[in-house]
């Protein structure tokens, strides 16, 4: 494994995802929409389940979901939700 420059020790994607689990997260999908909610679980395909999710299209709130399953192939990125 190659080491990354900087002060952080090497972290694998799975470790990163584990840290976000159960926390507010933001997921972008390839049609441009963004989903913000609590990350409940995910799998190796990046299929994702979130709860209390808000759907944003072009920065505009479009819809709310109680629970939502996102198909992994559409996921562009997953990250912790930025603090408001």
């Amino acid at each position: 494994m190659d080491s990354m420059p900087g002060q952080h020790e090497t972290q694998r994607p799975a470790d990163f995802l584990r840290q976000i689990l159960g926390r507010p997260a933001v997921v972008k999908v390839n049609n441009g929409a963004e989903y913000r909610g609590n990350l409940v679980c995910l799998d190796g395909y990046l299929n994702i389940v979130m709860e209390g999710t808000e759907e944003f299209v072009g920065g505009e709130l479009k819809r709310r979901y109680g629970d939502v399953f996102l198909r992994g192939n559409n996921v562009i990125y997953v990250g912790p939700a930025p603090a408001k």
């Binding site: 584990r18 679980c41 995910l42 799998d43 389940v49 399953f69």
Partner: peptide, 17 residues
């Protein structure tokens, strides 16, 4: 990933939903 993520949530994996 699956194994590590099962702990702590009601849903074990996304397909459970």
């Amino acid at each position: 990933t699956n194994g590590a993520l099962t702990g702590g949530s009601i849903l074990g994996e996304p397909s459970d939903l």
